[in-house]
Nucleic acid binder design. Structure first.
Lengths: 160, 160
DNA sequence: ATCCTTGCAAAGTCTTTGCACGGGA
DNA sequence: TCCCGTGCAAAGACTTTGCAAGGAT
């Protein structure tokens, strides 16, 4: 299929992400490379949560511009710093998981411990409450790890 | 020093914990051993959060009843099941951390990303809100991972 | 031309597992 | 006595790192 500009235009978003990444690299005297650009693209095009080995596998299957696992491992901290991706799903296995973060609103996760299904949610009251609690102890809140664990509707039906 | 019964009597709490552990083991046709009892004691006497290697080191330094790292690794899932300890501090390093849970109220953690200082907090509104959010998506909440990350009062002063 | 980047393989960590002996009930 | 528990060492899994060749500015 030829190049298509859709309504939400994912291609332009990726271009902006690459540009931001270039700026972050420039600011640290690092270089933009075709491999790094491929990693940014793969990370943003990936649907859902992924880990490093998985992203490397995708890149190698495409074959266009592959990246070794080591290179992807080395790139991830930079992608996080640039806001392209963010760590996610801490309660899922050994590997560090990530998800696209560029031009996406903040959210937390609700995970089904039975089937692994994941729902993203956002609640402003919750965000505020966390800040209030931190201030209660004199802390300045800079981030949080928050994951709700439960049983999803489908699995609840099955159990009956 | 001779055996001393203090006001809060930590010794009796440990005895109750050992008994509960014995019951859980019995229910699964497993056996209480002196090594497992030593692990329960060490876990409950440990002040703060620990990981497996650390607990094993403590047990070996005492020398009374040492336990190999492998044995402690094998025991932890059982201690969790018995409610003696619980996983904690997910955002701190590679190793799985634990903390005493027996006869202690539920709480979450507020961690200083500068100095590593940890504050335990509990907020009933927060607990309820999480349940409400889960129900909003038809989920039955069974647990959560929640860690607030920030800058503690001391580190905030230093930065100025 | 300089020096960062990459792939490969080796090394590091944390955790799990196989095995033979020791110990609990 | 039966069979689980334990220590030791080996194996696994994920991640990091050393090194020499390749690529970006």
């Amino acid at each position: 299929m030829a190049h298509v500009v859709t309504a939400s235009c994912p291609e332009e978003r990726i271009v902006r992400a690459v540009e931001r990444f270039r700026a972050v690299l420039y600011g640290r005297d690092l270089r933009m490379t075709s491999v790094r650009e491929a990693i940014v693209r793969a990370a943003l095009e990936y649907d859902g949560h992924f880990h490093v080995q998985e992203l490397a596998r995708v890149l190698q299957e495409r074959g266009l511009r592959d990246a070794s696992v080591a290179t992807v491992y080395r790139a991830m901290p930079l992608l996080v710093e640039a806001g392209i991706v963010q760590p996610a799903l801490v309660s899922a296995g050994d590997e560090q998981r990530y998800e696209a973060a560029f031009e996406r609103p903040h959210h937390d996760h609700l995970v089904c411990t039975q089937c692994g299904d994941v729902v993203e949610f956002h609640d402003e009251v919750l965000e505020t409450l966390q800040r209030v609690i931190a201030e209660r102890y004199g802390y300045e809140l800079t981030g949080h790890v928050h994951e709700l664990l439960g049983c999803c509707p489908k699995c609840r039906k099955k159990k009956r």
